[in-house]
Computed example of a mutant assay.
Amino acid sequence: MSDLAELAARLCERLRSAGLAVGADRAARFAKAVMLVSPQRTRELYLCALATLTSSPADAQVLASVFATVFDAPDVGAGGAFSAGESTGPSREVRAPTAGSAVDRLATRDFGTLEPAELALLRAAMSEFRLATPLRRSRRKRVSPGGRRADLRETLRVARRTGGEPVRLRRWVSREKPRKLVVLCDISGSMEPYARALLQLLVCAAGGARAEVFTFATRLTRLTRVLQRAPSEALADAGREAPDWSGGTKIGDSLGEFLDTHGARGMARGAVVVVLSDGWETGSPERLGREMARLSRLAYRIVWANPRTASPRFRPSTGGMAAAWPYCDAVVSAHRLDAIEDLLTAIAGCSGRD
């Protein structure tokens, strides 16, 4: 096995086959532990697994048996777990590079091919990205010597210190603040791994853009509050909050619901709106086109992230993508880590509608 990410995924798969309940949450915790510890020896890797993948002596027995088989480590097989003071003899080295090199390899892997444990390894890399939207003028103002407009009220207030004589003319400029970011994320079956990757990016990335996040498949679900928690908790809770996770796709209906309940009331006005979807529309493409036209009249900029566009054979000639394409300011793939920069650049782009 070539790297720690593959080791983590393979071990979790073997444990599930052996009857151990290793869900996405446990697999993510194990991957995070491997990333932090960067184990160089079998014992260290085993202890990471023991701490994150088991919750009872019975679980530890299953882990010990599977671990001994996978890594040819008989010293953890018969008795179960290592004890704190137990001597195990010389520990064998784990034949894998550090977590950093694992992330480098995963950077070119399509999100659709990653196991949950591998996706979790990308969190540290995603925290290095900066998520920012273009600035817009605020109604609030601030005093500035270089301002073009005179602030008479402030000038008169300061003049009290000089006997009422306005010795210095005070000027002001408008404050600037980041535009709102709204993310509409398709969580149908074909888009599930890409949705998890983008939601993880929103949780991990640095920057001043606080996103309003909605997921959709057959209906719309707001996840903004859920995603303000820690990454591992947020993604687990997101799955529970969105009842149609991995369902069908009605993009036009969901977009219409967003505009009727949130967007037209101000959330989408002047915002950067990101739609993550492969464009497979089980509803009416004509409805999607009408709702995209409504959205384009409200939003400052519309960015569509479609992993299918990574293929050189992709053409937006039919269905939902054909209906949506004329209203998009940018279309990117965002299908793997080294393509995320295109998405961030599109979000930060300054060309849009006022």
Results as ranks from 00 to 15, higher is better:
D151G: 03
P145I: 07
W325M: 12
A102Q: 09
G163A: 05
G279T: 14
P145A: 07
M35P: 00
A217Q: 10
E281C: 03
A9C: 05
L122E: 12
G252D: 11
E165G: 01
R148D: 03
A99C: 14
L223A: 08
V275M: 07
A334Q: 05
L121H: 03
L50D: 05
P316L: 00
M292R: 06
R171Q: 06
R290V: 03
S127H: 05
L198T: 12
S38F: 09
A58N: 12
R297C: 01
S254F: 10
K250Y: 15
D151H: 14
G189L: 07
F216M: 04
P39L: 04
D186S: 11
R137V: 13
T69L: 03
T224H: 01
A107D: 08
D237S: 11
A206M: 08
P74E: 09
R148S: 13
E241H: 13
R160M: 09
C328F: 07
C204T: 13
E212D: 07
D329C: 04
V143E: 04
L15A: 00
G352Q: 07
C48M: 02
M35K: 11
R168Y: 08
S333F: 03
G248I: 02
R148N: 07
L45Y: 09
G80M: 00
A78C: 03
Q228E: 13
Y46I: 04
P74I: 12
A33P: 09
L45Q: 11
T98E: 08
E281F: 02
A271M: 08
R315C: 01
A195T: 09
R210Q: 10
